[in-house]
Computed example of a mutant assay.
Amino acid sequence: MKPYQSIPIQDCGEPLIKIPLEQFSLETPHPYQKLGASYGPKSPYYLRAQVVEALIEAQTHLQQQYPGWKIHIFDAYRPVAVQQFMVDYTFTSLLEEKGLILDALSPTEKDNLWQQVYQIWAVPSDDLTTPPPHSTGGAVDITLKDDQGQLLDMGGMIDELSERSQPNYYATQRDNPGQSYHQRRELLNEIMTKAGFLRHPGEWWHFSLGDQMWAWQSQQAIAYYGRA
């Protein structure tokens, strides 16, 4: 159990609404759908109403500094079933990457692999008191696109299982492009925090508002978004 999961939830009942995608940048089809994840009647491009408003505000902050730039939405709402799919997919990919055979692994070796997976993936819990952040509609994974329609190089990929996913990985580097990567991550964090979001401590791309992680980071007594 992660520290933020101890925060109690009193869901405010705010609805999931469609993100106005024409205002943002996105990838179609959705990255996880391309891998085979099924959202059923749900859509990955939904968030809670207040979170959508805050995301629009964040883009306004961005465009005040860099006209024509856009927030690129990688992932937003994620049902628990999709969370489970991506956890399993990441574990299988890790086995293949390392050239390992599952049945040949000891319990300790398996546990070590799962610990790597859970560095960036929340447990796909069905417990209503410990929902994965994205399953609340209060979390979004994003990066930036410039006025030429090019994604900015942030020094690491979204969902990357490496130390480069740490928000401040490049903070102490004095070389170029290391400093450029850090400055871009700081810009992303700046526009989002101005709009009320908080960044995941271990993921430069993940921001939340109203869920347990947000409440824990902001020292709120309760979270007001539970599983949607």
Rank of each mutant, 00 (worst) to 15 (best):
N189E: 13
S208R: 10
Q115I: 12
F24L: 07
G149S: 04
L47I: 01
D159M: 14
Q83G: 01
I120V: 15
G13P: 07
Y39W: 12
D127T: 12
T28H: 09
H182A: 10
T130M: 13
I191Y: 00
K194P: 01
P132Q: 04
T130H: 03
G40M: 10
Y225V: 09
W216C: 11
S162C: 09
T193M: 05
Y32L: 15
D175H: 13
P31R: 13
R184S: 04
G68I: 05
R227G: 00
F85H: 02
K145M: 15
E186C: 12
K145E: 15
L47W: 05
L26T: 15
N189Y: 09
I17H: 07
H134L: 12
R185M: 05
Q166W: 11
L102I: 09
L21Y: 06
V117E: 03
I142H: 03
Q166F: 08
N176Y: 13
V82C: 02
L144H: 02
R185Q: 08
I222K: 15
S180Q: 07
S106Y: 00
A139L: 11
Q10M: 11
S208A: 09
S93L: 10
G202W: 03
E14L: 10
S135I: 06
D75L: 14
V80Q: 12
A104V: 06
R227Y: 04
L152Q: 07
M1C: 10
H200A: 01
S43V: 09
T92W: 09
A223G: 02
E163N: 04
V51Y: 00
H72M: 09
S125L: 08
T136C: 02
R78C: 14
I17R: 12
V52W: 03
L198P: 02
V117Y: 01
Y181H: 06
F85G: 00
P167A: 01
E96C: 06
L35Y: 10
T172E: 13
P107N: 07
Y181D: 04
L35F: 05
P29H: 04
Q220A: 13
L105R: 00
D111C: 05
W205C: 07
G226H: 03
P107I: 02
P44E: 05
K70Y: 04
Q219W: 08
Y32N: 15
Y32K: 15
G137C: 08
T143F: 06
S125T: 04
R48Q: 07
L113N: 00
E14Q: 11
F207I: 14
M154S: 06
R185S: 00
F207E: 01
P44Y: 05
H206V: 14
Q33G: 10
Q65C: 05
Q83I: 10
K194Y: 09
I142T: 07
R164K: 15
V52K: 04
P8H: 02
Y89Q: 12
Y118N: 13
G36N: 14
Q150L: 13
V117S: 02
Q63W: 01
S25N: 12
T90F: 08
G156T: 14
L209M: 09
L62F: 04
